[in-house]
Amino acid sequence: MFDWFAQIGKNAIEFYARLGKEVLLFIQTLLAFVPLVLRPGLIVQQIYSVGVRSMLIIIVSGFFVGMVLGLQGYNTLVDFGAEESLGVVVALSLVRELGPVVTALLFAGRAGSALTAEIGLMKATEQLSGLEMMAVNPVDRILAPRLLAGIISMPLLAAMFSAVGIFGGYLVGVDLLGVDEGSYWSQMQAKVDFDQDIVNGVIKSFVFGVVATWIAVYEGYTCIPTSEGVSRATTRTVVYSALVVLGLDFLLTALML
């Protein structure tokens, strides 16, 4: 019985130690943003591998999601004779929810897993140790530029997703199903509010950018440096990112309403 309590205590201490370590590393990484300003080249390079390379999948997915929203929304709205509101339905779903959330999930799968694998392999092949021995701090040189690039890229990707999605909804709704073009846009403009909807969507995607990129970078940096360890860390990145993004989405939505 006593052993059992001791085990719980030990696990709790272990948990807090890990949490504290992670928070400290996060702060250290954030502090490393400051000197990065002098080296924009590093950030540009990372925006390329994190953002530009995710652009295609985000745009194509956004287009399809918008078309599906157009179809589904039309079929539901037409029963109430309210198909003129299709633009509102498509735009609000995308801007407030699907844009930030689906982008974050795709980002975790596309860029997050790649980041974890990259950093994990750098650890496994002693590149991180090598940097330390060359008196270059891997937190400054490897973690910080990647985290910053993720934070910059995510809101831009989410905006692209939403914009392309609204266009996809337009193609299906207006060109295919015959919703009036004027009402598609004007109802949307009347109902979508800049402060309430657009800004909140951008805030969400920013938060998701921080969280998803941090999980990816942290899992890579702390993984067990073997091929099995790296593959597990990559899986964990995708799973944790998805769970945390969806959980946070509920929390943020509740806070913003």
């Binding site: 735009a91 801007v95 809101p155 831009l156 905006a159 692209m160 939403s162 914009a163 392309v164 609204i166 846009w185 949307m188 403009q189 979508v192 509010d193 800049f194 909807d197 657009i198 969507g201 951008v202």
Partner: peptide, 10 residues
């Protein structure tokens, strides 16, 4: 895209 969302959509 952000501008489109701000101006054309909202």
């Amino acid at each position: 895209a952000l501008l489109v969302l701000a101006v054309n959509v909202s």
